[in-house]
């Protein structure tokens, strides 16, 4: 299998996993809420391919499923977590946005995760593990002040933090024009942090840029700020979408699956789709079978 086919298969799995989540929601089989990554898959898949789950760490946010699957490949743990099952990655305690497995963490308060990822990098630096601490933030998180405190400390102390800013152009329902002043990139440059910026849904371009960023961090030990302009096709969470449908449709021409899929042979793409559907069906069946989380006996 080519590298592109592997990336495509991961993206397709994330996409189909989350479409399945939304279906299961409408069937009443999921609890709480969920924030899907549909449309942004090339970012997580492209970046995380450069990280070693045994060494590197990720701190993700409320929109964490794509990052989690790309890093851990633990679809059963995630699905059963979101279904409130005892077999969930956090035993049903965390739900969709509070995940932990190995070196992966996520939490649900915007900005909150950025200092923690900075502290992780400081600890790993002290331990001399060579780990890169990656934190995923979005345009909305740029409204939180601790983001800048963290940038300052990461630069000041030369910490191996990869800040990935996924600008999907909306903070919940608020368009970026109403929540963000100035330049996203220049924010980090002001702290003396190296940056790169891409406006693409091409997983190969993102993969290459992320590879350069991670390599720089491994070489210098210093932080890197990678800005990825993107778009989510799905609502913020489930039914809450006031965007112009024409805007969303126009963006679908740049669907990362379409862009990458066009470079694969038809039969390879179809074989991937079959594998993804089969794995997904097995995952759903297993998660449906799993026992629900129950309070411990007093």
């Amino acid at each position: 299998m080519t590298a592109l086919a592997t990336l495509y298969e991961r993206m397709l799995f994330v996409r189909r996993f989350e479409e399945t989540l939304l279906d299961l929601f409408s069937q009443g089989k999921l609890v709480g809420t969920t924030h899907t990554y549909i449309g942004q898959e090339a970012n997580g898949v492209g970046v995380i391919d450069h990280l070693d789950p045994a060494v590197d760490t990720i701190f993700s946010n409320h929109r964490c499923h794509g990052h989690y699957l790309a890093f851990t490949d633990d679809a059963f743990g995630l699905l059963s977590e979101v279904m409130g099952k005892a077999t969930g990655t956090c035993g049903g305690k965390g739900g969709s946005q509070h995940l932990c497995r190995g070196n992966f963490y996520s939490n649900g308060v915007l900005g909150s995760i950025v200092p923690v990822a900075t502290g992780i990098a400081l600890a790993e630096k002290k331990k001399g593990t060579g780990a890169v601490s990656t934190v995923f933030l979005g345009d909305g998180t740029l409204g939180e002040g601790v983001t800048y405190e963290s940038l300052n400390m990461a630069s000041l102390w030369t910490l191996p933090v990869l800040f990935v800013v996924e600008n999907n152009h909306y903070a919940q329902s608020t368009p970026v024009e109403l929540e963000l002043a100035g330049s996203i990139r220049a924010r980090a440059e002001a702290f003396g942090v190296e940056t790169d910026e891409l406006d693409t849904t091409d997983v190969e371009e993102i993969h290459a840029a992320a590879g350069r960023a991670v390599a720089r961090i491994r070489e210098t030990g210093a932080p890197f700020w990678l800005v990825l302009h993107t778009y989510r096709f799905s609502p913020h969470s489930k039914g809450d979408d006031n965007r112009d449908p024409a805007e969303i449709e126009a963006r679908r021409e740049r669907d990362p699956l379409t862009v990458a899929g066009a470079r694969l042979e038809d039969d390879e793409r179809e074989a991937i789709a079959v594998r993804v559907e089969q794995r997904l069906a097995e995952t759903v069946a297993a998660a449906e079978e799993a026992p629900f989380a129950e309070p411990e006996a007093a």
Partner: peptide
Amino acid sequence: ASLFGVAAGMALRGR
């Protein structure tokens, strides 16, 4: 505001 988080991150990773 961040230092509490920095300390938490360090503690999560064995310091």
